[in-house]
Simulated scan of single mutants.
Amino acid sequence: MGSAIQTSLVLALFTAMAIRPPRPRHSSPFNLQFAFGYLINEQPFLGGLWLATGTWDLLTAAPSGLLWWLVAALTTADAAALAWLAVRTRSARPALTAALLATYGEPGRPRATRPVWWRVLLVPFISWRPDVRRVRNRRYGPARRGNRLDVYLSRRRRPSSAPVLVYIHGGGFRIGNKMIGARPLIYRLAARGWVCVSLDHRLIGVDYADQLGDTRAALAWIRAHIGAYGGDPNAIVLAGGSSGAHLASTAALSGEEVLGVIGIYGYYGGVGGAGTGPASPHEAITPDAPPFLIIHGTLDTLVLREDARAFAQRLRAVSRRPVTYAELPGAQHSFDLFHSLRFTAVSDAIVRFLELTLATDTTLARTHHRSRPGTSGGPAAVGATVRAHDRRPR
């Protein structure tokens, strides 16, 4: 009886924090609202499993007293709240679609894919799939652990001049790992012929300038070596979550040539220890910025949506390239860590953004060539570029 009451009460607290967490006054690396509400918010099905296993024995017995009815009432309320959280995740797709349509018009509409239900319900934290090979721990700098990256490749397709997605993990610039963040997206793209890279950077005993330097060093290694894995060094898209979005955005805005940037629940504010370089993406905004896709949750308690929205608005006011900003109703921080209904919709939107970005880059390359009739390579070279970049994920 006691364990059933405890289960129902704890879940009531967690679901309350998930449905409407108290909003902090400013962005921060950690708070209790996130700790209590995050997992249930993003994985209400796991909450339902926990609730069922914790109360099943009591509730399947004959009613016996006030405590039984109390547990029954709490369990019913918890189940209803979890169902509401599951339904709320469906609001991500309309929000993402609206954001892409506002930027690109009807071509921006993403194709909806079905969630892999057995992963969502049974093994949401496992993204491994047999048709993707991970080449581990390629060293791109002198640091023993902090300067390593993994390359993800399709086992069924041999990439050739394939576009490259580079992902930088989050963790408040102090924790994190290249094995954490956007795994479902990375495996999905790699299985479809992309070359994907997830990198570590130094965390302890370094400042932001060092971490930005690690990002640049990793990109230099990728440009020099990714061809050996079938990737196109001239077709790189940077992505990152939280502090990784900060590093990706700052690197792209301050000189690194990439086709696009994807910021997922990103922090874009100032940091200490920036040295002589930019301390935030805000300081590096330029009209020549690449296309951006910025995705943020309305209930993010670690990085407030107002901060992400302000960066998107400022970037959009200056950049000559598309800037898409989408707020996901009810989403918390770190919603890309596992398979879920919400991240399936996010992945579909990212895939469409990548398709449009590659198509735009190919069009610009063709236009640039035609404007310079003396350029070496001729139409065949441009056609090869189009074919190489047309290996798009479906």
Rank of each mutant, 00 (worst) to 15 (best):
R174M: 07
Y140K: 00
G141Y: 03
G146D: 00
P124L: 10
G172C: 09
G141I: 02
T113E: 13
V132D: 14
G141C: 05
P142N: 11
R144F: 10
Y167P: 00
V164C: 09
G171M: 05
R134D: 00
S127M: 04
L149W: 02
Y140E: 07
W128V: 05
V123S: 11
R114E: 11
S161Y: 01
G170Q: 04
I126Y: 00
V166E: 03
R129W: 00
R148F: 00
Y140S: 09
R145F: 08
P159I: 02
V120K: 09
V116N: 15
V132I: 04
G146R: 15
N147E: 15
D150R: 13
P159R: 02
R148Q: 15
L165R: 09
G146F: 11
V166W: 00
V164I: 08
V120M: 10
A162D: 02
D131Q: 14
V164F: 06
V166Y: 00
R138C: 15
R155M: 01
A143K: 07
W117H: 04
A143H: 12
P130Y: 05
W128C: 01
V116G: 06
W117L: 14
L149A: 13
P130I: 04
Y167G: 02
V135Y: 09
Y140H: 04
V116H: 14
D131N: 15
A162V: 03
V151D: 05
S127Q: 09
R145W: 09
R144S: 13
S127R: 03
A162T: 04
R157I: 08
P130Q: 04
W117P: 01
R145S: 13
V135L: 12
I168K: 06
V123W: 09
I175L: 14
A162L: 01
G172Y: 07
G170I: 05
D131R: 14
F125M: 13
